[in-house]
Design a protein around this nucleic acid. Sequence first.
DNA 1: TGGGAGATCATGGGCGTCAATGGATTGGTG
DNA 2: CACCAATCCATTGACGCCCATGATCTCCCA
Lengths: 157, 157
Amino acid sequence: MDRFVSTYTMRLDAKGRVSIPAPFRAVLAKDGAESLHCHPSLAEPALDAGGSRLLGEIEDLIARYPPYSEAREQLATALYGTSESLRIDPEGRVVLTETQKAHAGIGDHVAFVGLGHKFRMWEPDRLKAHLAEATRRVRELRQAIGSQAEGPKGSPA
Amino acid sequence: MDRFVSTYTMRLDAKGRVSIPAPFRAVLAKDGAESLHCHPSLAEPALDAGGSRLLGEIEDLIARYPPYSEAREQLATALYGTSESLRIDPEGRVVLTETQKAHAGIGDHVAFVGLGHKFRMWEPDRLKAHLAEATRRVRELRQAIGSQAEGPKGSPA
DNA sequence: TGGGAGATCATGGGCGTCAATGGATTGGTG
DNA sequence: CACCAATCCATTGACGCCCATGATCTCCCA
């Protein structure tokens, strides 16, 4: 398995350490990551994290803009500047910074959500609310689609 | 780790010395830098700094313009003429010049922001404001990036 | 099919090391 | 002789590393 899949909820210990779920550690190891690259999600109160694939994606994005251009420097500031390269201890744990925990509202538990080439860390309750909202929207979307495609008689006016 | 990543805020002591964050020192060491090359940011009240990778980038940028062209000489003046090669003491500290501190409005604290191949030094409060703006811009760019396959590329500066 | 040994994993705590900072000392120089 | 600056030394506090403990899971074999 070379992608981050599924969701795991882990506990922070008294020192603020959190175990990265073992399956995610395996993906990171295969990816050749020594540390966990981590930055605030752009649109969510959560943290995006990953290994060299995530870093490569960010680098490519920035490299599209010419050196010293305003867009490039803003991208670099927002993406690199707010990133943390978290050290992974011998037991596979990391310590989130206060800034990161504040951004995601994380207290003593963290939910790890696999997103393929990266994963996302949430405060568990916020994740639950986020999922509820997401599924609600998907249902609406399906209904809209369904009433268009399936309605043999009632095509939408 | 071969990039400057994350943000660190450090304190100047009574002699004006400030520690370069240890992770940044590690990048500089890998880069083979003995001193810290440092110049005012072109568009911000901040200081850009780095090692030989930064020097290489500056050289490439200037080399794009024909010798004796006005653009070239202006760039060379702005990037080389205002540069300082700061000595790094055995504890990993540097002393900023008065000119540099004035340009960035730096008092007794400096925020070091990683930008990948270089990093930037800010007065901490100014960084906060700038970061908010950069984050806003990146959110806008994100939508454009999501909808178009290719980003802008090419024309210098 | 049930039991049990071994392995894996999440978690807790103690300790040594290093980084950040402050101050003292020494050497060069006008 | 005095001042500036660069190296050296010392302190404190955080953080990384090591080892320990349960608890769960896997797999093998009776």
